[in-house]
């Protein structure tokens, strides 16, 4: 016995859903949430804009984007992978800790086939995502358009961004 055809709803009707993600952090671990969610949204056919501001600028500055780091200092939720064990906060500031933690995090991400940040941004752009840089952050960092990834569409003001994201769902990371 058969039932009538069941066709998945792939959203043929355009709902006009739009997502804007503000990336304000430049630590390696905090770069990823925006990238993963932005990429997922694009894969669902949602118009997606990423706006880089403050420390998030390091994700799009050509000379820095390959060297984002992760520090476990001040992060009491960091455990040794697969265990509940903590490294005491008091030893976090020792020399080499940030390099070691960064290396470990990169290895974990690589094992899961998660791309590095620059590569991930390239994928997001290939999927139709839009990258924007914050005017104030550019001025503060003394950064020009030529210092940024070529696929950043522009350096825009906060009000430009608000105007551009009318009706969008917003995520601040």
């Amino acid at each position: 016995m058969t039932t009538p055809a069941i066709v998945p709803n792939f959203g043929a009707e355009d709902t006009g859903r739009k997502l804007a993600i503000i990336c304000s952090k430049g630590n390696l671990d905090m770069a990823y949430p925006g990238l993963i969610l932005g990429n997922a949204a694009l894969g669902e056919g949602i118009e997606t804009h990423l706006f880089f501001t403050f420390w998030g600028f390091d994700m799009i500055i050509k000379s820095r984007m390959n060297d984002l780091q992760f520090s476990p200092a001040g992060n009491t939720a960091m455990h040794l992978p697969g265990t509940d064990a903590h490294i005491p906060q008091s030893v976090m500031p020792v020399p080499g800790m940030t390099a070691m933690a960064t290396h470990m995090l990169k290895k974990q991400l690589e094992d899961l086939n998660i791309p590095e940040v620059p590569d991930f941004l390239e994928q997001i752009v290939a999927a139709g995502g839009h990258l924007w840089a914050c005017r104030l952050s550019a001025d503060m960092n003394k950064v020009e358009e030529t210092d940024l990834r070529d696929d950043v569409e522009g350096i825009i003001s906060a009000s430009d961004f608000i105007e551009m994201t009318e009706g969008a769902q917003l995520l601040f990371i």
Binding site: F10, N113, A126
Partner: peptide, 26 residues
């Protein structure tokens, strides 16, 4: 989509052209 690009060699951009909007699911 990522795996289809890195292992299969089909660029993400092309996947969106061939299977618009929701390439991985389609």
């Amino acid at each position: 989509s990522r795996h289809t690009q890195t292992v299969g060699g089909f660029p993400i951009k092309e996947q969106f052209e061939l299977f618009p909007k929701k390439p991985a699911k389609k």
